[in-house]
Write a protein that binds this DNA or RNA. Structure first.
Length: 777
RNA sequence: GCGGCGGUGGCGGAACUGGUAUACGCGAUGGAUUCAAAAUCCAUUGCUCGCAAGGGCAUGUGGGUUCGAUUCCCACCCGCCGCACCA
């Protein structure tokens, strides 16, 4: 009997799949297109190709492939493409350090990724492969940019932006975490720069509403996105500064507390600050304060518990509800980029305003009595600031009314007076997409002194990224030094003009790649509407939670914008989302510095791709993380070897051509019952949130049962038929995880190709237990 | 502080709708095979008292509902993740 040599088996089947283009699927209108089957579009988030794939990749592609196989065998026409998110800073930083051009290094990594994915036996339709750094791809990234530009959804403006001094580029808000660059951890600075933005805020409401359309997105991802979009309802109320002749609108979620406003605060960056203090006694101290705030990092400023600071402006505004004059302050706890950059301060009913009032000895006024409805801690409820509900006091004609009712009445009254209206505010800001770096898609815009911002005409796309010598960032894009490339005639008037030298954030590239997969060879369009209408939306999207906000929000925005521009039929790109957990080692996140990394290639060569793949699916529920152990992989390898050995044994004894007889009794009957039990269990757990660990456990139980009875059954033709059926069943059920061994064993037992077989169905008659358990009360 | 997820043997984890807690795997112990080892196979393995038959205790803690609770309810403790001066 020969040993289980996984690499031999795996290479053999990989050759078959490659030669026969088994996983290649035609589009509508193409030869071989099959519309008799329902479609299923399975996408695993595309990798950033750097070095070699790590275990995270092994896990996510194993999970995705299991789903793809299961869908195929349940009668779906499945496409599972692959691509590379191949623009990005790491390749460029590497180029600065080593001199290896980003393109060369990236393409080497892509080859390595493709080779390993092939060795793992992932069932990819390679005819659809894309890489975002190729002109064939980014030509269409640029085209989409221009589409957004035409619709006013891409615009250029000067704004205070987050600048990472280490990476020497601006960052999107989403890419700044705790005041630090999400990539490199460097503290970011605020700079006032002209930058390109996508108008994500135009879709803020729709991004919230369309969560309705999503079928199985994990709650925590939706929650995170909702928090990020940060919708709050309230009112916009205008306070007037008579002495300076300026109206100050403020956003408040508590218009019911308007009568309690005792002062007024504006942000240090407020554009009208100069007008308010110019030539007054307050000018000196205010300027000093504003400068000191500017010197502070965002992180320091954002600290919730820090003592309140601020400076009086020596002016007042009029409270529109009672005509009262209240003093104005500038303070850094008011942020310019939320609401209107000014707030009415109600220290009696807001904790931050209260803290400020205490510090500056300002009056605190109660306008809501603690309600008696809650009945809990009366003492605490009586203290100020009080943020709960209750009847209004000291609020003119609204006294005695419950604050929730007063809310509506006050807003109605303000609207009548023309001093306010209902309003909704979002925390979400527009997406800053320009980067002062080299290795990205050039922004296809030409700056002309006379014509302004001129889009590069369609027939001149792509704007090819030129090859340069010096990648080092100098505060502006390295592209600025490429004179031949920068200087071009204006497409409109022909005068001398200059190209935009910024490149796009790589998240732009990855916001639409799942559309390019559908029509990757199309040189006339980004993708055909017909192909998109057939395949979209993605039926199952799979990836890490770390993209819960960034990538998933951007891709959702893209789909909505493309839909509104008539290029796409769906508003949500990913109908179902599955997020897989991270694999650790020795309980810690893997990192080169800790020396606890796992190189999948090593395990694939030692135990086979099937064992490595099955192990990552067996570690625990795939949405959770797990700790990698060598013993664990060995255990799975042992299980696969057992399946292999029993196959050899049955082959040696002679594989029966007959099916097991229906009347079989004893061990044969028990074994068949176990096989049907395993089919039933595996099918249910597969469908129930991809519980792969228990699917695999069920197959292990079946194999254990085969071993328990095989010596008794192998001598008898009928018993051998039962063994062959059960072994083929085990192969069939393990195939989504171990496609090579699944194919091998299945072929030996039946002569057929397992991936062409329908997923097995359990015979209900075989599921009935002989022993009926009666529950006695 | 707010929101979400979780806590079960020595370890990773099972347990569907409230019905045999600990499936499956790892590890450990004993045995078979072998000149020996590897590999393989078989058996045992929650803790505890007992020579044994058998008993007691166990799903983070404390209560509750129920004939019956890992599962449902209330209160609390711990861990992980996200957000956090957003008016």
């Amino acid at each position: 009997m020969s040993r289980y040599e996984p690499r031999e088996i795996e290479e053999r089947w990989q050759r078959v799949w490659a030669d026969e283009k088994t996983w290649q699927v035609a589009n509508p209108g193409q030869e071989g297109f099959d519309d008799s089957k329902p479609k299923s579009y399975v996408v695993v988030m595309l990798p950033y190709p750097s070095g070699e794939p790590h275990v995270g990749h092994l896990k996510v592609y194993s999970v995705g492939d299991a789903i793809a196989h299961f869908r195929r065998r349940n009668g779906f026409e499945v496409i599972q493409p692959m691509g590379y998110d191949s623009f990005g800073l790491p390749a460029e930083n590497n180029a600065i350090n080593t001199g290896v051009p980003p393109k060369a290094a990236t393409e080497k990594s892509i080859d390595s990724f493709r080779n390993q994915f092939t060795e793992w036996g992932i069932s990819v339709d390679w005819s659809r492969e894309i890489a975002t750094h190729t002109p064939e791809y980014y030509r269409w990234t640029q085209w989409i940019f221009l589409q957004l530009f035409e619709k006013g959804l891409a615009y250029r403006t000067q704004a205070p932006v987050q600048w990472c001094p280490k990476d020497a580029t601006v960052l999107a808000n989403e890419q700044v975490v705790d005041g630090r660059c999400e990539r490199c951890g460097t503290e970011v600075e605020t700079r006032n720069l002209r930058q390109w933005f996508f108008k994500t805020t135009a879709y803020a409401q729709q991004l919230l509403d369309d969560f309705e359309l999503l079928e199985t997105w994990p709650d925590h991802v939706i929650t995170m996105q909702k928090n990020w979009i940060g919708r709050s309802e309230g009112a916009e109320v205008t306070f007037r500064c008579e002495s300076a002749d300026i109206d100050f609108p403020v956003f408040t979620t508590r218009p019911d507390t308007l009568f309690g406003a005792t002062f007024f605060v504006i942000a240090p960056e407020h554009p009208q600050l100069d007008q308010l203090i110019g030539g007054t006694d307050a000018e000196e101290p205010v300027r000093e304060y504003v400068n000191s705030v500017a010197r502070e990092s965002l992180q320091e400023r954002g600290d919730e518990g820090r003592p309140k600071t601020g400076v009086p402006l020596g002016r007042t505004v009029t409270n529109p509800v009672n005509g009262e004059e209240i003093p104005m302050f500038v303070a850094d706890y008011v942020l310019m980029d939320y609401g209107t950059g000014a707030v009415m301060a109600v220290p009696g009913h807001d904790e931050r305003d209260f803290a400020f009032a205490q510090k500056f000895d300002l009056p605190v006024r109660r306008v809501i009595e603690p309600g008696n409805e809650s009945g809990d801690d009366a003492e605490e409820a009586g203290e100020l600031p009080y943020t709960g509900d209750g009847p209004m006091v000291d609020s003119g004609s609204f006294d005695g009314i419950h604050n929730r009712e007063a809310y509506d009445q006050i807003v109605a009254w303000l609207a009548e007076e023309g001093r306010g209206e209902l309003s909704v505010n979002f925390r979400l800001r527009d997406w800053l997409v320009s980067r002062q770096r080299y290795w990205g898609a050039p922004i296809p815009i030409i700056h002309c002194d006379d014509c302004g911002l001129v889009p590069v005409p369609d027939d001149q796309l792509p704007v090819v990224l030129p090859e340069i010598e010096d990648y080092a960032p100098k505060g502006k894009s390295p592209l600025a030094a490429a004179d031949d490339w920068v200087n071009v005639p204006c497409p409109k008037c022909g005068a001398e003009a200059k190209r935009e030298t910024d490149t796009m954030d790589t998240f732009v590239d990855s916001s639409w790649y799942f559309l390019r997969y559908l029509d990757s060879q199309n040189s006339e369009a980004a993708f055909s509407r017909e192909a998109a209408d057939h395949w979209m939306a993605v039926d199952q999207y799979i990836g890490g939670v770390e993209h819960a906000i960034l990538h998933l929000l951007y891709a959702r925005f893209f789909a909505k914008a493309l839909k509104d521009m008539g290029h796409l039929g769906v508003a949500e790109p990913f109908a179902n989302l599955f997020t897989q957990g991270m694999i650790t080692r020795d309980g810690a996140k893997m990192s080169k510095s800790k020396g606890n990394t796992v190189n999948p290639a090593e395990y694939v060569s030692r135990h086979g791709a099937d064992a490595a793949r099955t192990y990552v699916c067996f570690m625990g529920p795939p949405e959770r993380g797990g700790d990698w152990t060598d013993e664990g992989v060995e255990g799975v390898h042992r299980f696969l070897s057992r399946l292999w050995r029993v196959t050899e044994e049955i082959v040696a004894a002679g594989v029966p051509t007959e099916k097991p007889s229906a009347g079989i009794e004893g061990d044969g009957r028990t074994l068949l019952a176990k096989a049907h039990w395993a089919i039933d269990k595996a099918t249910r757990d597969f469908s129930r949130g991809f519980q792969f660990n228990t699917v695999i456990a069920a197959v292990m139980e079946l194999v254990n049962e085969i071993y328990r009875v095989k010596d008794d059954l192998i001598g008898d033709p009928d018993g051998r038929a039962a063994l062959a059926f059960s072994t083929a069943t085990a192969a069939s059920l393990i195939q989504p995880f171990a496609p090579h061994l699944g194919a091998e064993v299945y072929e030996q037992m039946t002569g057929d190709r397992v991936w062409e077989q329908e997923w097995p169905e359990a015979d209900p008659a075989m599921l009935k237990s002989d022993i009926v358990t009666i529950v006695v009360r």
